[in-house]
Design a binder for these strands. Structure first.
Length: 430
RNA sequence: UGGGGCGUAGCAUAGCUGGCAAUGCGCCUGGCUGUUAACCAGGAUACCGAAGGUUCGAGUCCUUCCGCCCCAGCCA
């Protein structure tokens, strides 16, 4: 008998097939069983009539519990009453393993409980939908850069020092010396851009920030493109084309999953280039007009970002922040040296920052002075400074947080559900 | 690290002014040939987060501690 995945069941209408999967739920009506079977590709209702199956198959239905593994064989038939439109008219049931006391029931649960059972929670339809969309987003990211002349260059996870001295790093023993888990691959991408022109890295990054918010993880994935001879305007153009391509791909290929998540796709349909661009000064003026208490010269807070992003239907690109609040490697604006040539992309619907980037300082002396000013160990950056000694050029790049992007596109309130096994301040397990 | 909230059965909750700890899901037993988070009848399951205190009596009031959630800071 043919094996089939549930997503392909329609192709076997009228034929006998075997579906291998797990029991999602079951209902009985005397001499009739309705088994809702999932296999990772979908759900199908298997109808077992006592008169049509061997005695042991019917007994197996009685013993089968939620998440027991089983194989059901029978005829695929269209049926309006069945979820998915097709049902399996069962001829035999084989129970592989009986799941006892599966903790996640079809009713409501709290987040801490579900997170403790994350390894099982992944089986639920909402979670599989999120994971498929995450996969599609990652694929779209790779496709975008790969088809635009970028080369993938992997950055190391063990690093000798901070890329940005301001944030906290995870420290680890590296034989006889200390090492840190990377918080960004950017400095390495700058080196790679001088070799290959257009590069990107994609991998996990780590930040030991003790932040307990809906948009922070201690381990998260970031994609970081870096382009030689690109200025801030080129960088913003890249960001808007990139983000639009990613959102467009999910809308195109993952409609079903977005529906499962009850995501209103209308706001996503509007994500096309160009994006509005406003300077930090304009953003500050906007906040003042809206009556938000905001101190000029400071970084934008979460609430400020929400207020600004809610004023636009598309992602907003806020550029030229005060240089003082930004990292040492940012280039100052020649027309106003108090500002940095940087950009934050704030996603709409109150999501906030998903991209941070800008043009890098390319002058050796200026960069050296900034490293000193930030109190960073000059010695650790000797290789980085080499990039300004040997054929320095203007260059720009940005970092996009995968989890925040997945959360935005899926319409999730918290990033913890956007990654299979989240690492947070209070969570290292499972 | 600050501000706010919450810990009651495997899970989700109720529990008023201190007086026999309740309901739903799940589980067990039985019934039903078209169920849609099925339904109907019956049953088992609680060191009420921990320690101390007030009281004749504490899930409930007080103190300390532990854990979690939300918001802020930091950021992607």
């Amino acid at each position: 008998m043919n094996k089939t995945y549930i997503s392909d069941a329609g192709r076997f209408e009228g034929q006998d097939v075997t579906v291998n999967g797990w029991l999602y739920n079951k209902r009985s009506s005397g001499k009739l069983w309705f088994l809702l079977v999932r296999d990772g590709t979908g759900l199908i209702q298997a109808v077992v009539s006592k008169a049509d199956v061997p005695e042991e198959s019917f007994a197996a239905c009685e013993r089968a519990t939620q998440e027991s593994s089983l194989s059901v064989s029978g005829r695929i038939a269209p049926d309006k009453r069945a979820p998915g439109g097709y049902e399996l008219q069962v001829k035999s049931v084989v129970l592989h393993q009986t799941a006892l006391d599966y903790p996640i029931t079809p009713k409501e649960h709290g987040t801490p409980f579900l997170m403790d059972n994350r390894h099982l929670w992944l089986r639920s339809s909402r979670q599989t939908a999120i994971l498929r969309i995450r996969h599609e987003i990652i694929r779209a990211i790779r496709d975008f850069f790969d088809s635009n002349g970028f080369t993938l260059v992997d950055a190391p996870v063990f690093t000798p020092a901070a890329c940005e001295g301001t944030t906290t790093l995870f420290e680890t023993q590296y034989f006889d010396e200390k090492a840190f888990l990377t918080q960004s691959g950017q400095l390495y991408m700058e080196a790679a851009a001088m070799a290959l022109g257009k590069v990107y890295c994609f991998g996990p990054t780590f930040r030991a920030e003790k932040s307990k918010t809906r948009r922070h993880l201690t381990e998260f994935w970031m994609v970081e493109p870096e382009v030689a001879y690109a200025d801030l305007d080129d960088d913003m153009a890249l960001a808007e084309n990139f983000l639009s391509a990613v959102v467009g791909r999910v809308l195109e290929t993952r409609k079903e999953e977005l529906k499962t998540l009850e995501r209103d796709t209308a706001p996503l349909e509007k994500i096309t280039p160009p994006f509005p661009r406003i300077s930090y000064d304009e953003a500050a003026k906007m906040l003042k007009e809206k009556g938000v208490a905001f101190e000029y010269g400071t970084d934008l807070g979460g609430t400020d970002e929400t207020v600004i992003s809610e004023a636009f239907e598309k992602p907003v690109m806020v550029h030229r922040y005060p240089a003082e609040v930004k990292a040492f490697y940012m280039k100052n604006d020649p027309s106003d040296p108090s500002k940095a040539l940087c950009v934050d992309v704030l996603a709409p619907e109150g999501i906030g920052e998903v991209i941070g980037g800008g043009q890098r300082e390319d002058d050796l002396e200026t960069l050296l002075a900034k490293i000193k000013k930030h109190g960073l160990p000059e010695q650790a950056f000797d290789w980085y400074l080499d990039l300004r000694k040997y054929g320095s050029v203007p260059h720009s790049g940005f970092g996009l947080g995968i989890e925040r992007t997945v959360g935005w596109i899926c319409g999730l309130p918290h990033v913890r559900e956007t990654i299979p096994f989240p690492r947070m301040l209070n969570r290292l397990k499972p």
